[in-house]
């Protein structure tokens, strides 16, 4: 990473204290990521800037922010992709989650919804049964596979219009997780989970705008998962 002879870019960073954007001049570098820019500002210009990151390589899902209006992983988004043609870089916290400070949001409501959708494996009550055989090619296993790679970054939840409109809505991340579990033959809470996702604020609140699918950095499709839950709850149909 070599600096291109003093060339700089303008980064507009959301500051929660004054409640407005603050402009910073940052050296423009080849292949720099949005997270590089935020880190440079925090280390060189303003150590009070609050943000969150951990792995820097798209594994942990903790650095998601709103970059030029789009929810993204900042570690896997290069500046020239988010703000092409030298346009200003605007970085704000994720939408639809309560801000903690500057660019960091509280992820607790996301994981509370996750629990409300029964988005966790529940072992069956019967003990001593033989192992459940799950052949990889079965439709249910494939349906679970399609959604299993979620790392809980909250990008889909931030992109969701319904999550913005209805605070009770479980949201795409929680419902996608529920979908992987209703397709898990080993799970022992199938009826309870269908009841949880079919309740008010559940799958039926989804309007299929597909913003979650459009923005998921893992290329998952929570809209498809939610439509699967709707069919399962309304018609009892399985993949």
């Amino acid at each position: 990473m070599s600096a291109d002879a003093g060339e700089t870019l303008t980064a507009r960073i959301w500051r929660s204290g004054p409640g407005r954007f603050q402009d910073f001049r940052v050296p423009r570098r080849a292949n720099q990521t949005v997270l590089d820019v935020v880190t440079w500002i925090q280390r060189r210009l303003d150590p009070t800037l609050g943000y969150r990151f951990a792995c820097r390589v798209g594994m942990c899902g903790s650095c998601a922010m709103t970059v030029n209006g789009v929810p993204r992983w900042t570690c896997r988004t290069r500046v020239e992709r988010a703000a092409p043609g030298g346009e200003a870089l605007e970085i704000a916290p994720l939408r639809n989650l309560p801000p903690i400070k500057d660019l960091a949001v509280d992820m607790t409501p996301l994981f509370e919804r996750w629990q409300k959708a029964l988005g966790r494996f529940v072992p069956p009550v019967e003990q001593g049964n033989d192992f459940v055989v799950v052949p990889p090619a079965t439709p249910a296993r494939r349906a679970a596979d399609a959604g299993i790679e979620c790392i809980g970054c909250g990008v889909c939840h931030a992109a969701c219009d319904l999550a913005a409109a209805d605070v009770e809505y479980l949201g795409p991340a929680a419902l996608n997780r529920a979908w992987t579990l209703v397709n898990d033959a080993r799970d022992g809470a199938q009826l309870a989970r269908i009841a949880a996702v079919a309740a008010a604020g559940g799958a039926f609140a989804c309007h299929s705008h597909q913003n979650c699918q459009a923005h998921c950095p893992k290329g998952l499709n929570p809209t498809a998962a939610i439509s699967g839950l709707k069919r399962m709850a309304a018609l009892g149909s399985r993949p």
Partner: peptide, 14 residues
């Protein structure tokens, strides 16, 4: 179209 989204198998070509 919405009925198809909600009651038929998901299609990628929305």
């Amino acid at each position: 179209r919405l009925l198809a989204v909600e009651f038929l198998a998901w299609q990628e070509d929305q």
